[in-house]
Every structure is written in structure tokens, then in C-alpha cells.
């Protein structure tokens, strides 16, 4: 009974704090917007130049001039503002965004992140990921705990080209939740049906376990 993608997104939504400005990456992180807890008001930033991102438009109401960073059609809210890419990344690099939730191919036990390139295979580009991890106050990764071939993604040292060094503060995977800080990595929550031994056997990184688990 490991966590599903929706479970991971729901768990990540608990990291949202009233008043936060938040940037959600493409993929599972986008789902977090569906689970914002009652009473928590956050403003979503889209790095192509929008603060205050609304839901998808109703059928027939999509506007080609209004997309998010995943190039999906969206809507505006009454708080929305639009701006240029340089203003947008001024917000990101200037430390004005509170939380970034993004995906990962690998995370190291020190919080290094690799999520943009597989040499010789995948040539897509880093987009805004390097700016986000360098500038945003708190970085949460949501990822499948293991790759499709079963290999570990939470490892001692990343083997893929890095997106940032010592940037990840938290990992939420189908196994559970790990905090990463100057003391190293700590398992703080387990998904239902997952034991500490399961977590260890599926992880290459060294981690501590919080007392109450």
C-alpha cells in the first residue's frame, strides 16, 4: 500500500502554508493544486510570467495567450498579475517565492538534485529548474522512489548531470517523507504498509529515522 501519485500530491499539499507564493513543476507537482487544504490560501506562480494562476478553463473558453509553464491553457484570478520572463525570474532568483515543488530523476543524500538531462539520450533542457532550486526558499521533490528498472533514485551521489547542489529540503516518494538538512537525511514518515526495512532496501542514500517511527 505504498502511496499513489495522488497520495504524494496530497502529502505535499500539507507543506503549503497560508500566504505562501508557490511554484509547482510539471507532472505530479501540478496535482498538488488539487489538494490545497481548506483555510490555506496560496498564490501559484507560473514562471512564464504570471502570479495568481487559476484552474483550467471551461471547454470553449481556452485563451492561447494564457498558458502555464507546462504550456497548458489556464485561467486568471482576481489577484492575477502578468509580467515578463525577467521579472518572473527576478521573483524566483531574488528569493521571493516561498516554496517550489518539482520532480526528480535523482536526489543525493546531501540534497543534490538531477532532473534535466540524460547524456546522449534526452535533450530537452533545464527550463527554469536551475533558477528555481537556486532561488526559492524551500524545495520539495515529489518522485517515484525507484526508477522503472527498480534502481534507487535517492542515492549517495548523483550520477546524472546536476540541476543544483545541496538544494533539496524534502523528498516525498511512494515510500514516505525524507527531510534533508545539514545533519543529513532523515526519514520522518512512512507510507502505509511500508516498513523502515523496505525503505532502506529501496534506498542507496544513508538516512536516519525519526524517533516516533
Amino acid at each position: 500500500m505504498a502511496w499513489t501519485r495522488e497520495d504524494m500530491a496530497r502529502r505535499a499539499a500539507k507543506e503549503l502554508v497560508n500566504g505562501y507564493y508557490v511554484n509547482l513543476g510539471i507532472g505530479i507537482p501540478t496535482l498538488v493544486a488539487n489538494f490545497i487544504p481548506d483555510g490555506v490560501d496560496v498564490t501559484l506562480q507560473s514562471e512564464n510570467g504570471m502570479l495568481g494562476m487559476g484552474p483550467f478553463p471551461y471547454e470553449g473558453e481556452a485563451d492561447p495567450d494564457l498558458i502555464n509553464a507546462g504550456k497548458q491553457t489556464i485561467t486568471e484570478l482576481n489577484r492575477t498579475s502578468y509580467f515578463s520572463s525577467s521579472d518572473s525570474f527576478g521573483m524566483i532568483r531574488g528569493g521571493h517565492i516561498d516554496l517550489s515543488i518539482l520532480g526528480a530523476m535523482q536526489v543525493s543524500e546531501e540534497g543534490d538534485l538531477a532532473n534535466w538531462m540524460i547524456p546522449g539520450k534526452m535533450v530537452k533542457g533545464m527550463g527554469g529548474a536551475m533558477d528555481l532550486v537556486a532561488g526559492v526558499k524551500k524545495v520539495v521533490v515529489i518522485m517515484d522512489h525507484n526508477a522503472r528498472d527498480g534502481s534507487a533514485k535517492f542515492i549517495k551521489k548523483c550520477t546524472l548531470p546536476l540541476t543544483g547542489v545541496r538544494v533539496v529540503d524534502m523528498i516525498i516518494s511512494d515510500v514516505g517523507v525524507f527531510l534533508i538538512n545539514d545533519d543529513g537525511a532523515t526519514l520522518i514518515e512512512l507510507a502505509p504498509g511500508i516498513s523502515i526495512d523496505d525503505a532502506r532496501s529501496r534506498t542507496e542514500a544513508e538516512f536516519n529515522v525519526t524517533k516516533n517511527l
Binding site: P55, Y58, K71, T73
Partner: peptide, 12 residues
Amino acid sequence: EKRIEQLTTRQR
């Protein structure tokens, strides 16, 4: 043309 890359909508 203003082509849309990812048309995403929701149900009323």
C-alpha cells in the same frame, strides 16, 4: 494561427 500546444479544460 495562435496555436495551442496543450489544450486543457475542465467540466462545468
